[in-house]
Design a protein around this nucleic acid. Structure first.
Length: 415
DNA sequence: TCTGGGGTCCTAGGACCC
DNA sequence: TCTGGGGTCCTAGGACCC
């Protein structure tokens, strides 16, 4: 086991909001929120009023009447997020990026060049501040999990180093909610047995935890509370699924609504799969009803698919199955399509539109080949003229755009 | 004042195989 | 014939993360 703390967790502070305050100096020091209908990010000044990401815009305004909403410069978020991660790359190739604004780095192999992990972290923070104008917090520890907790404790705009001798003392007074994987449900369950700090968690028998939370979560939390944690960084991980969803407000559950929406969602998903030659075997749909309860249906095919209309048809079959099982639900508030069991990587040329075993989806039928050709044609046109040049069912989505496409793209993982 | 969108992982039951 | 055990895959739902 390593005896020195060499893992850094770097996390840009209130990232989208900080970028807006960087771009428009008149916003600095003020409570701002990125978004509109829903808050995508809030500045620390806004958080002081209780404004949080994911909160409806109306509620945020209630909490903070002087809150300033800004639309969002999504391409700048991508550029600056990438630039911040590049600063880490200057120190070590062992970088695991976990989102647009967050990454781990293991500096064990470069301390002889750049100094102690603490010095490296200080340099990184200074460079991000000077070169990009953004505040970033860093936690340094012996394990990933502890480094992540340390960066949370360091926020905003701070650095916390947890030396090996002080780990348990550092952990044991912190609330369990700071642990990765402890959300509202787990927190509530732990509270029922009187566990609120990581120290109390550590003193709880492992068997009791696995009974309460299941084997995986119980083992994990027990190990983490004693700081026994894998420290290996995963520098390249492939995506395991790709999906798209659309909130609909309250719409009647009829074909006129469902069919064009599914076609649009299928297009978003399938074109990404085709672009990376990663067709998938399992298609999952999610239908959310008026009361926000949701149901999923999935099917695993013999052959992977990435053709838009075939994905839309399979999704349509699954959605019809959901509605048949819930005949009293007349209103839907969201539709989603996801494809998983992605192929490692297929040669695009060899991929044929295979699908369900029934007649109409057989490979090699004229219909199937025609669709395959149509997808390829659309992909080519978009390559030359942009995404908006041609598409499926966009007309049907007039008012349904609650979130800009640029934001959706930011959230996507590289396949 | 019913809250967006894109992801990951786990669980539990059933089917099926050895 | 009955009983038992282990493993894998599929499906539906849930919790969690950014």
């Amino acid at each position: 086991m390593e005896t020195t703390a060499t893992i850094l967790h770097a996390d840009l502070d209130a990232f989208y909001a900080s970028v807006e305050q960087l771009l428009d100096p008149s916003l600095r020091g003020k409570p701002i929120a990125v978004g509109g209908g829903v808050v995508l990010a809030a500045s620390y000044e806004a958080r002081a009023f209780g404004v949080r990401g994911g909160m409806p815009g109306r509620k945020a305004r209630e909490l903070c009447p002087q809150l300033i909403f800004v639309g969002g410069n999504f391409s700048e978020y991508q550029r600056l997020g990438d630039a911040a991660i590049k600063v880490l790359d200057d120190f070590t190739p062992l970088v695991e990026r976990i989102s647009i604004d967050e990454a781990f780095a293991d500096v064990a192999g470069c301390t002889h060049l750049f100094g102690s992990p603490q010095e490296i972290a200080t340099t990184i923070r200074r460079r991000v501040r000077q070169e990009l104008g953004l505040p970033i917090s860093i936690g340094v520890a012996r394990t990933k999990h502890l480094a992540k907790i340390a960066s949370q404790v360091a926020k905003p705009n701070g650095l916390v180093v947890v030396d090996p001798g002080t780990e348990l003392a550092f952990l044991h007074n912190l609330p369990v909610g700071l642990m990765w994987g402890v959300g509202p449900a787990t927190k509530a369950r732990l509270a029922e047995i009187g566990v609120e700090t990581i120290g109390q968690l550590a003193r709880t028998h492992r068997g009791a935890l696995t009974r309460l939370l299941g084997p995986a979560a119980g083992e994990k939390l027990s190990a983490l509370s004693w700081n026994r944690d894998p420290r290996r960084l995963e520098t390249k991980r492939r995506a395991r699924s790709a999906g798209a969803q659309s909130a609909l407000g309250q719409k009647p559950a009829v074909a006129r609504v469902i069919v064009p929406t599914l076609l649009h969602l299928a297009d978003r998903v399938a074109s990404r799969l085709r672009a990376k030659a990663r067709p998938g075997r399992t298609v999952t749909v999610r239908v959310r009803f008026a009361d926000l309860s949701a149901v999923t249906r999935s099917i695993t095919l013999d052959q992977p698919i990435s053709a838009t209309t075939m994905l839309a048809e399979i999704a349509g079959d699954l959605v019809r199955g959901v509605l048949a099982d819930h005949p009293h639900e007349k209103t839907i508030s969201l539709l989603a399509i996801s494809v998983s069991h992605l192929e490692e990587s297929a040669e695009l040329q060899l991929e044929l539109p295979l699908g369900l075993a029934d007649e109409k989806h057989r490979p090699g039928t004229r219909k199937g080949l025609a669709r395959f050709g149509a997808d390829r044609a659309i992909d080519k046109i978009r390559e030359r003229f942009g995404k908006q040049a041609v598409g499926y069912g966009t007309v049907a989505l007039e008012a349904a755009r609650s979130v800009p496409d640029e934001f959706r793209e930011l959230a996507q993982k590289e396949l």
